[in-house]
């Protein structure tokens, strides 16, 4: 029996390493250890072995079985590895470019807007939104802009015909005209009319001016405005906000300064200059970045807030202008052409 077992092992070690595929292997396995396999046959012979030889024979069979199983396992592992290797194909050249398009890119105006919103969010401003088609009341009247103010002229503001109807843009009075908002301040009015103070909003959005398109002007552009209404809001708080915004955007040593100015909806009003040392392509020491002021009591009265109780500030700036300054872009039209070579530069 020992000879038979040895022969069996020898046969297996000769055959098994040569097996290439799983069916061959399964067939071979059956031949050795299957119910009709050779080892099984030998094991069945145990009965014929004299009793005193049985322990030795049993031990021998077990050893053989173990060795055979090891050989089978090795063969199976080898076949399995070969199968996986077959799935691979030749090695890749990792230096070849991916043929897939992309990655996608955010528009620079989105990047700047979102960065500003994140900065403002940290100090409690939430993003508010309102319609781009507005009415004279929300865009002008409520903002202390008299009816013969030049900004309301048809030369400067886009109007819709009297017959135009906008189902989801509410009018204050039936007579007033629809127009394209000239600033996002109308969002301030709608927000204040919606509920009582305190209010702390930032309203980025698209605005329209009837203007010749050139390197610095565009028929539509984007603004970002902040409004804060609460008790005891002061000029000093406004200055603190502006300092905070631009220090966050451009670095701790960035400074702002206020110059007195005039806007109908704020009193006092200021223009805001930014120390320009961190901006590319700007040679001046200071550069104008936006306008701000304390909300005029007239505006509070228009929205039903008591100006003796509430005070607030507002700040507004052009997003294109900010993006142009931050990135050193010198033509506003590039924002609206969407040349991929432009878009890919900011992601």
């Amino acid at each position: 029996m020992q000879d038979q077992l040895s022969a069996l092992l020898a046969k297996a070690s000769a055959e098994l390493p040569g097996l290439k595929a799983r069916p061959e292997f399964e067939a071979a396995k059956a031949r050795y250890v299957g119910p009709n396999g050779e080892l099984t046959a030998l094991m069945k012979q145990m009965g014929t072995v004299p009793k005193e030889q049985r322990p030795a024979a049993g031990k021998l069979i077990n050893e053989t079985k173990t060795q055979l199983q090891a050989q089978l396992d090795a063969a199976l592992a080898r076949i399995g590895a070969a199968e996986l290797a077959a799935q691979l194909g030749p090695a890749v050249d990792p230096t070849l470019p991916s043929p897939d398009v992309g990655p996608g890119t955010y528009h620079p105006l989105t990047l700047v807007r979102e960065e500003m919103c994140r900065i403002l969010r940290k100090v409690g401003f939430v993003v508010a939104d309102g319609p781009e088609v507005e009415t004279e009341y929300y865009c002008f009247d409520a903002l202390n802009t008299p009816s013969d103010h030049p900004a309301r002229d048809e030369k400067d503001t886009f109007y819709f015909p009297d017959s135009a109807r906008f189902g989801n843009v509410s009018k204050k009075t039936p007579e007033e005209k629809y127009l394209l908002r000239t600033h996002t301040s109308s969002v301030q009015i709608r927000t204040m009319l919606k509920g009582p103070p305190p209010i702390r909003i930032v309203s980025p959005g698209r605005v329209y001016r009837r203007d010749t398109t050139d390197a610095t002007h565009s028929a539509n552009f984007h603004q970002l405005e902040c409004l804060y209404v609460d008790r005891n809001v002061t000029v000093r708080d406004l200055k603190a906000l502006l300092d905070y915004i631009f220090a966050s955007l451009l670095g701790k040593d960035t400074k702002t300064r206020f110059r007195p100015h005039y806007f109908g909806y704020t009193e006092p009003s200021f223009e805001v200059d930014l120390s320009a040392r961190h901006l590319p392509k700007v040679k001046k020491e200071w550069i104008e970045i936006g306008g701000c002021g304390m909300v005029d009591p007239t505006v509070f009265e228009a929205v039903g807030y008591d100006p003796d109780i509430w005070s607030g500030y507002a700040f507004g700036m052009g997003l294109e202008r900010l993006a142009m300054l931050l990135y050193g872009i010198d033509d506003i039209r590039y924002f609206y052409q969407n040349d991929l070579r432009f878009l890919k530069q900011f992601a």
């Binding site: 919103c117 969010r121 940290k122 100090v123 409690g124 939430v126 993003v127 508010a128 939104d129 305190p198 209010i199 702390r200 609460d230 000029v235 000093r236 708080d237 200055k239 603190a240 906000l241 300092d243 905070y244 300064r257 206020f258 110059r259 007195p260 200021f270």
Partner: peptide, 19 residues
């Protein structure tokens, strides 16, 4: 207006989310 003193921004939360 250049002499408006510098202060830290104050920011009470208003418990509102973005639009």
């Amino acid at each position: 207006t250049e002499k408006i003193p510098v202060t830290a921004v104050t920011s009470p939360g208003l418990l509102v989310d973005d639009d």
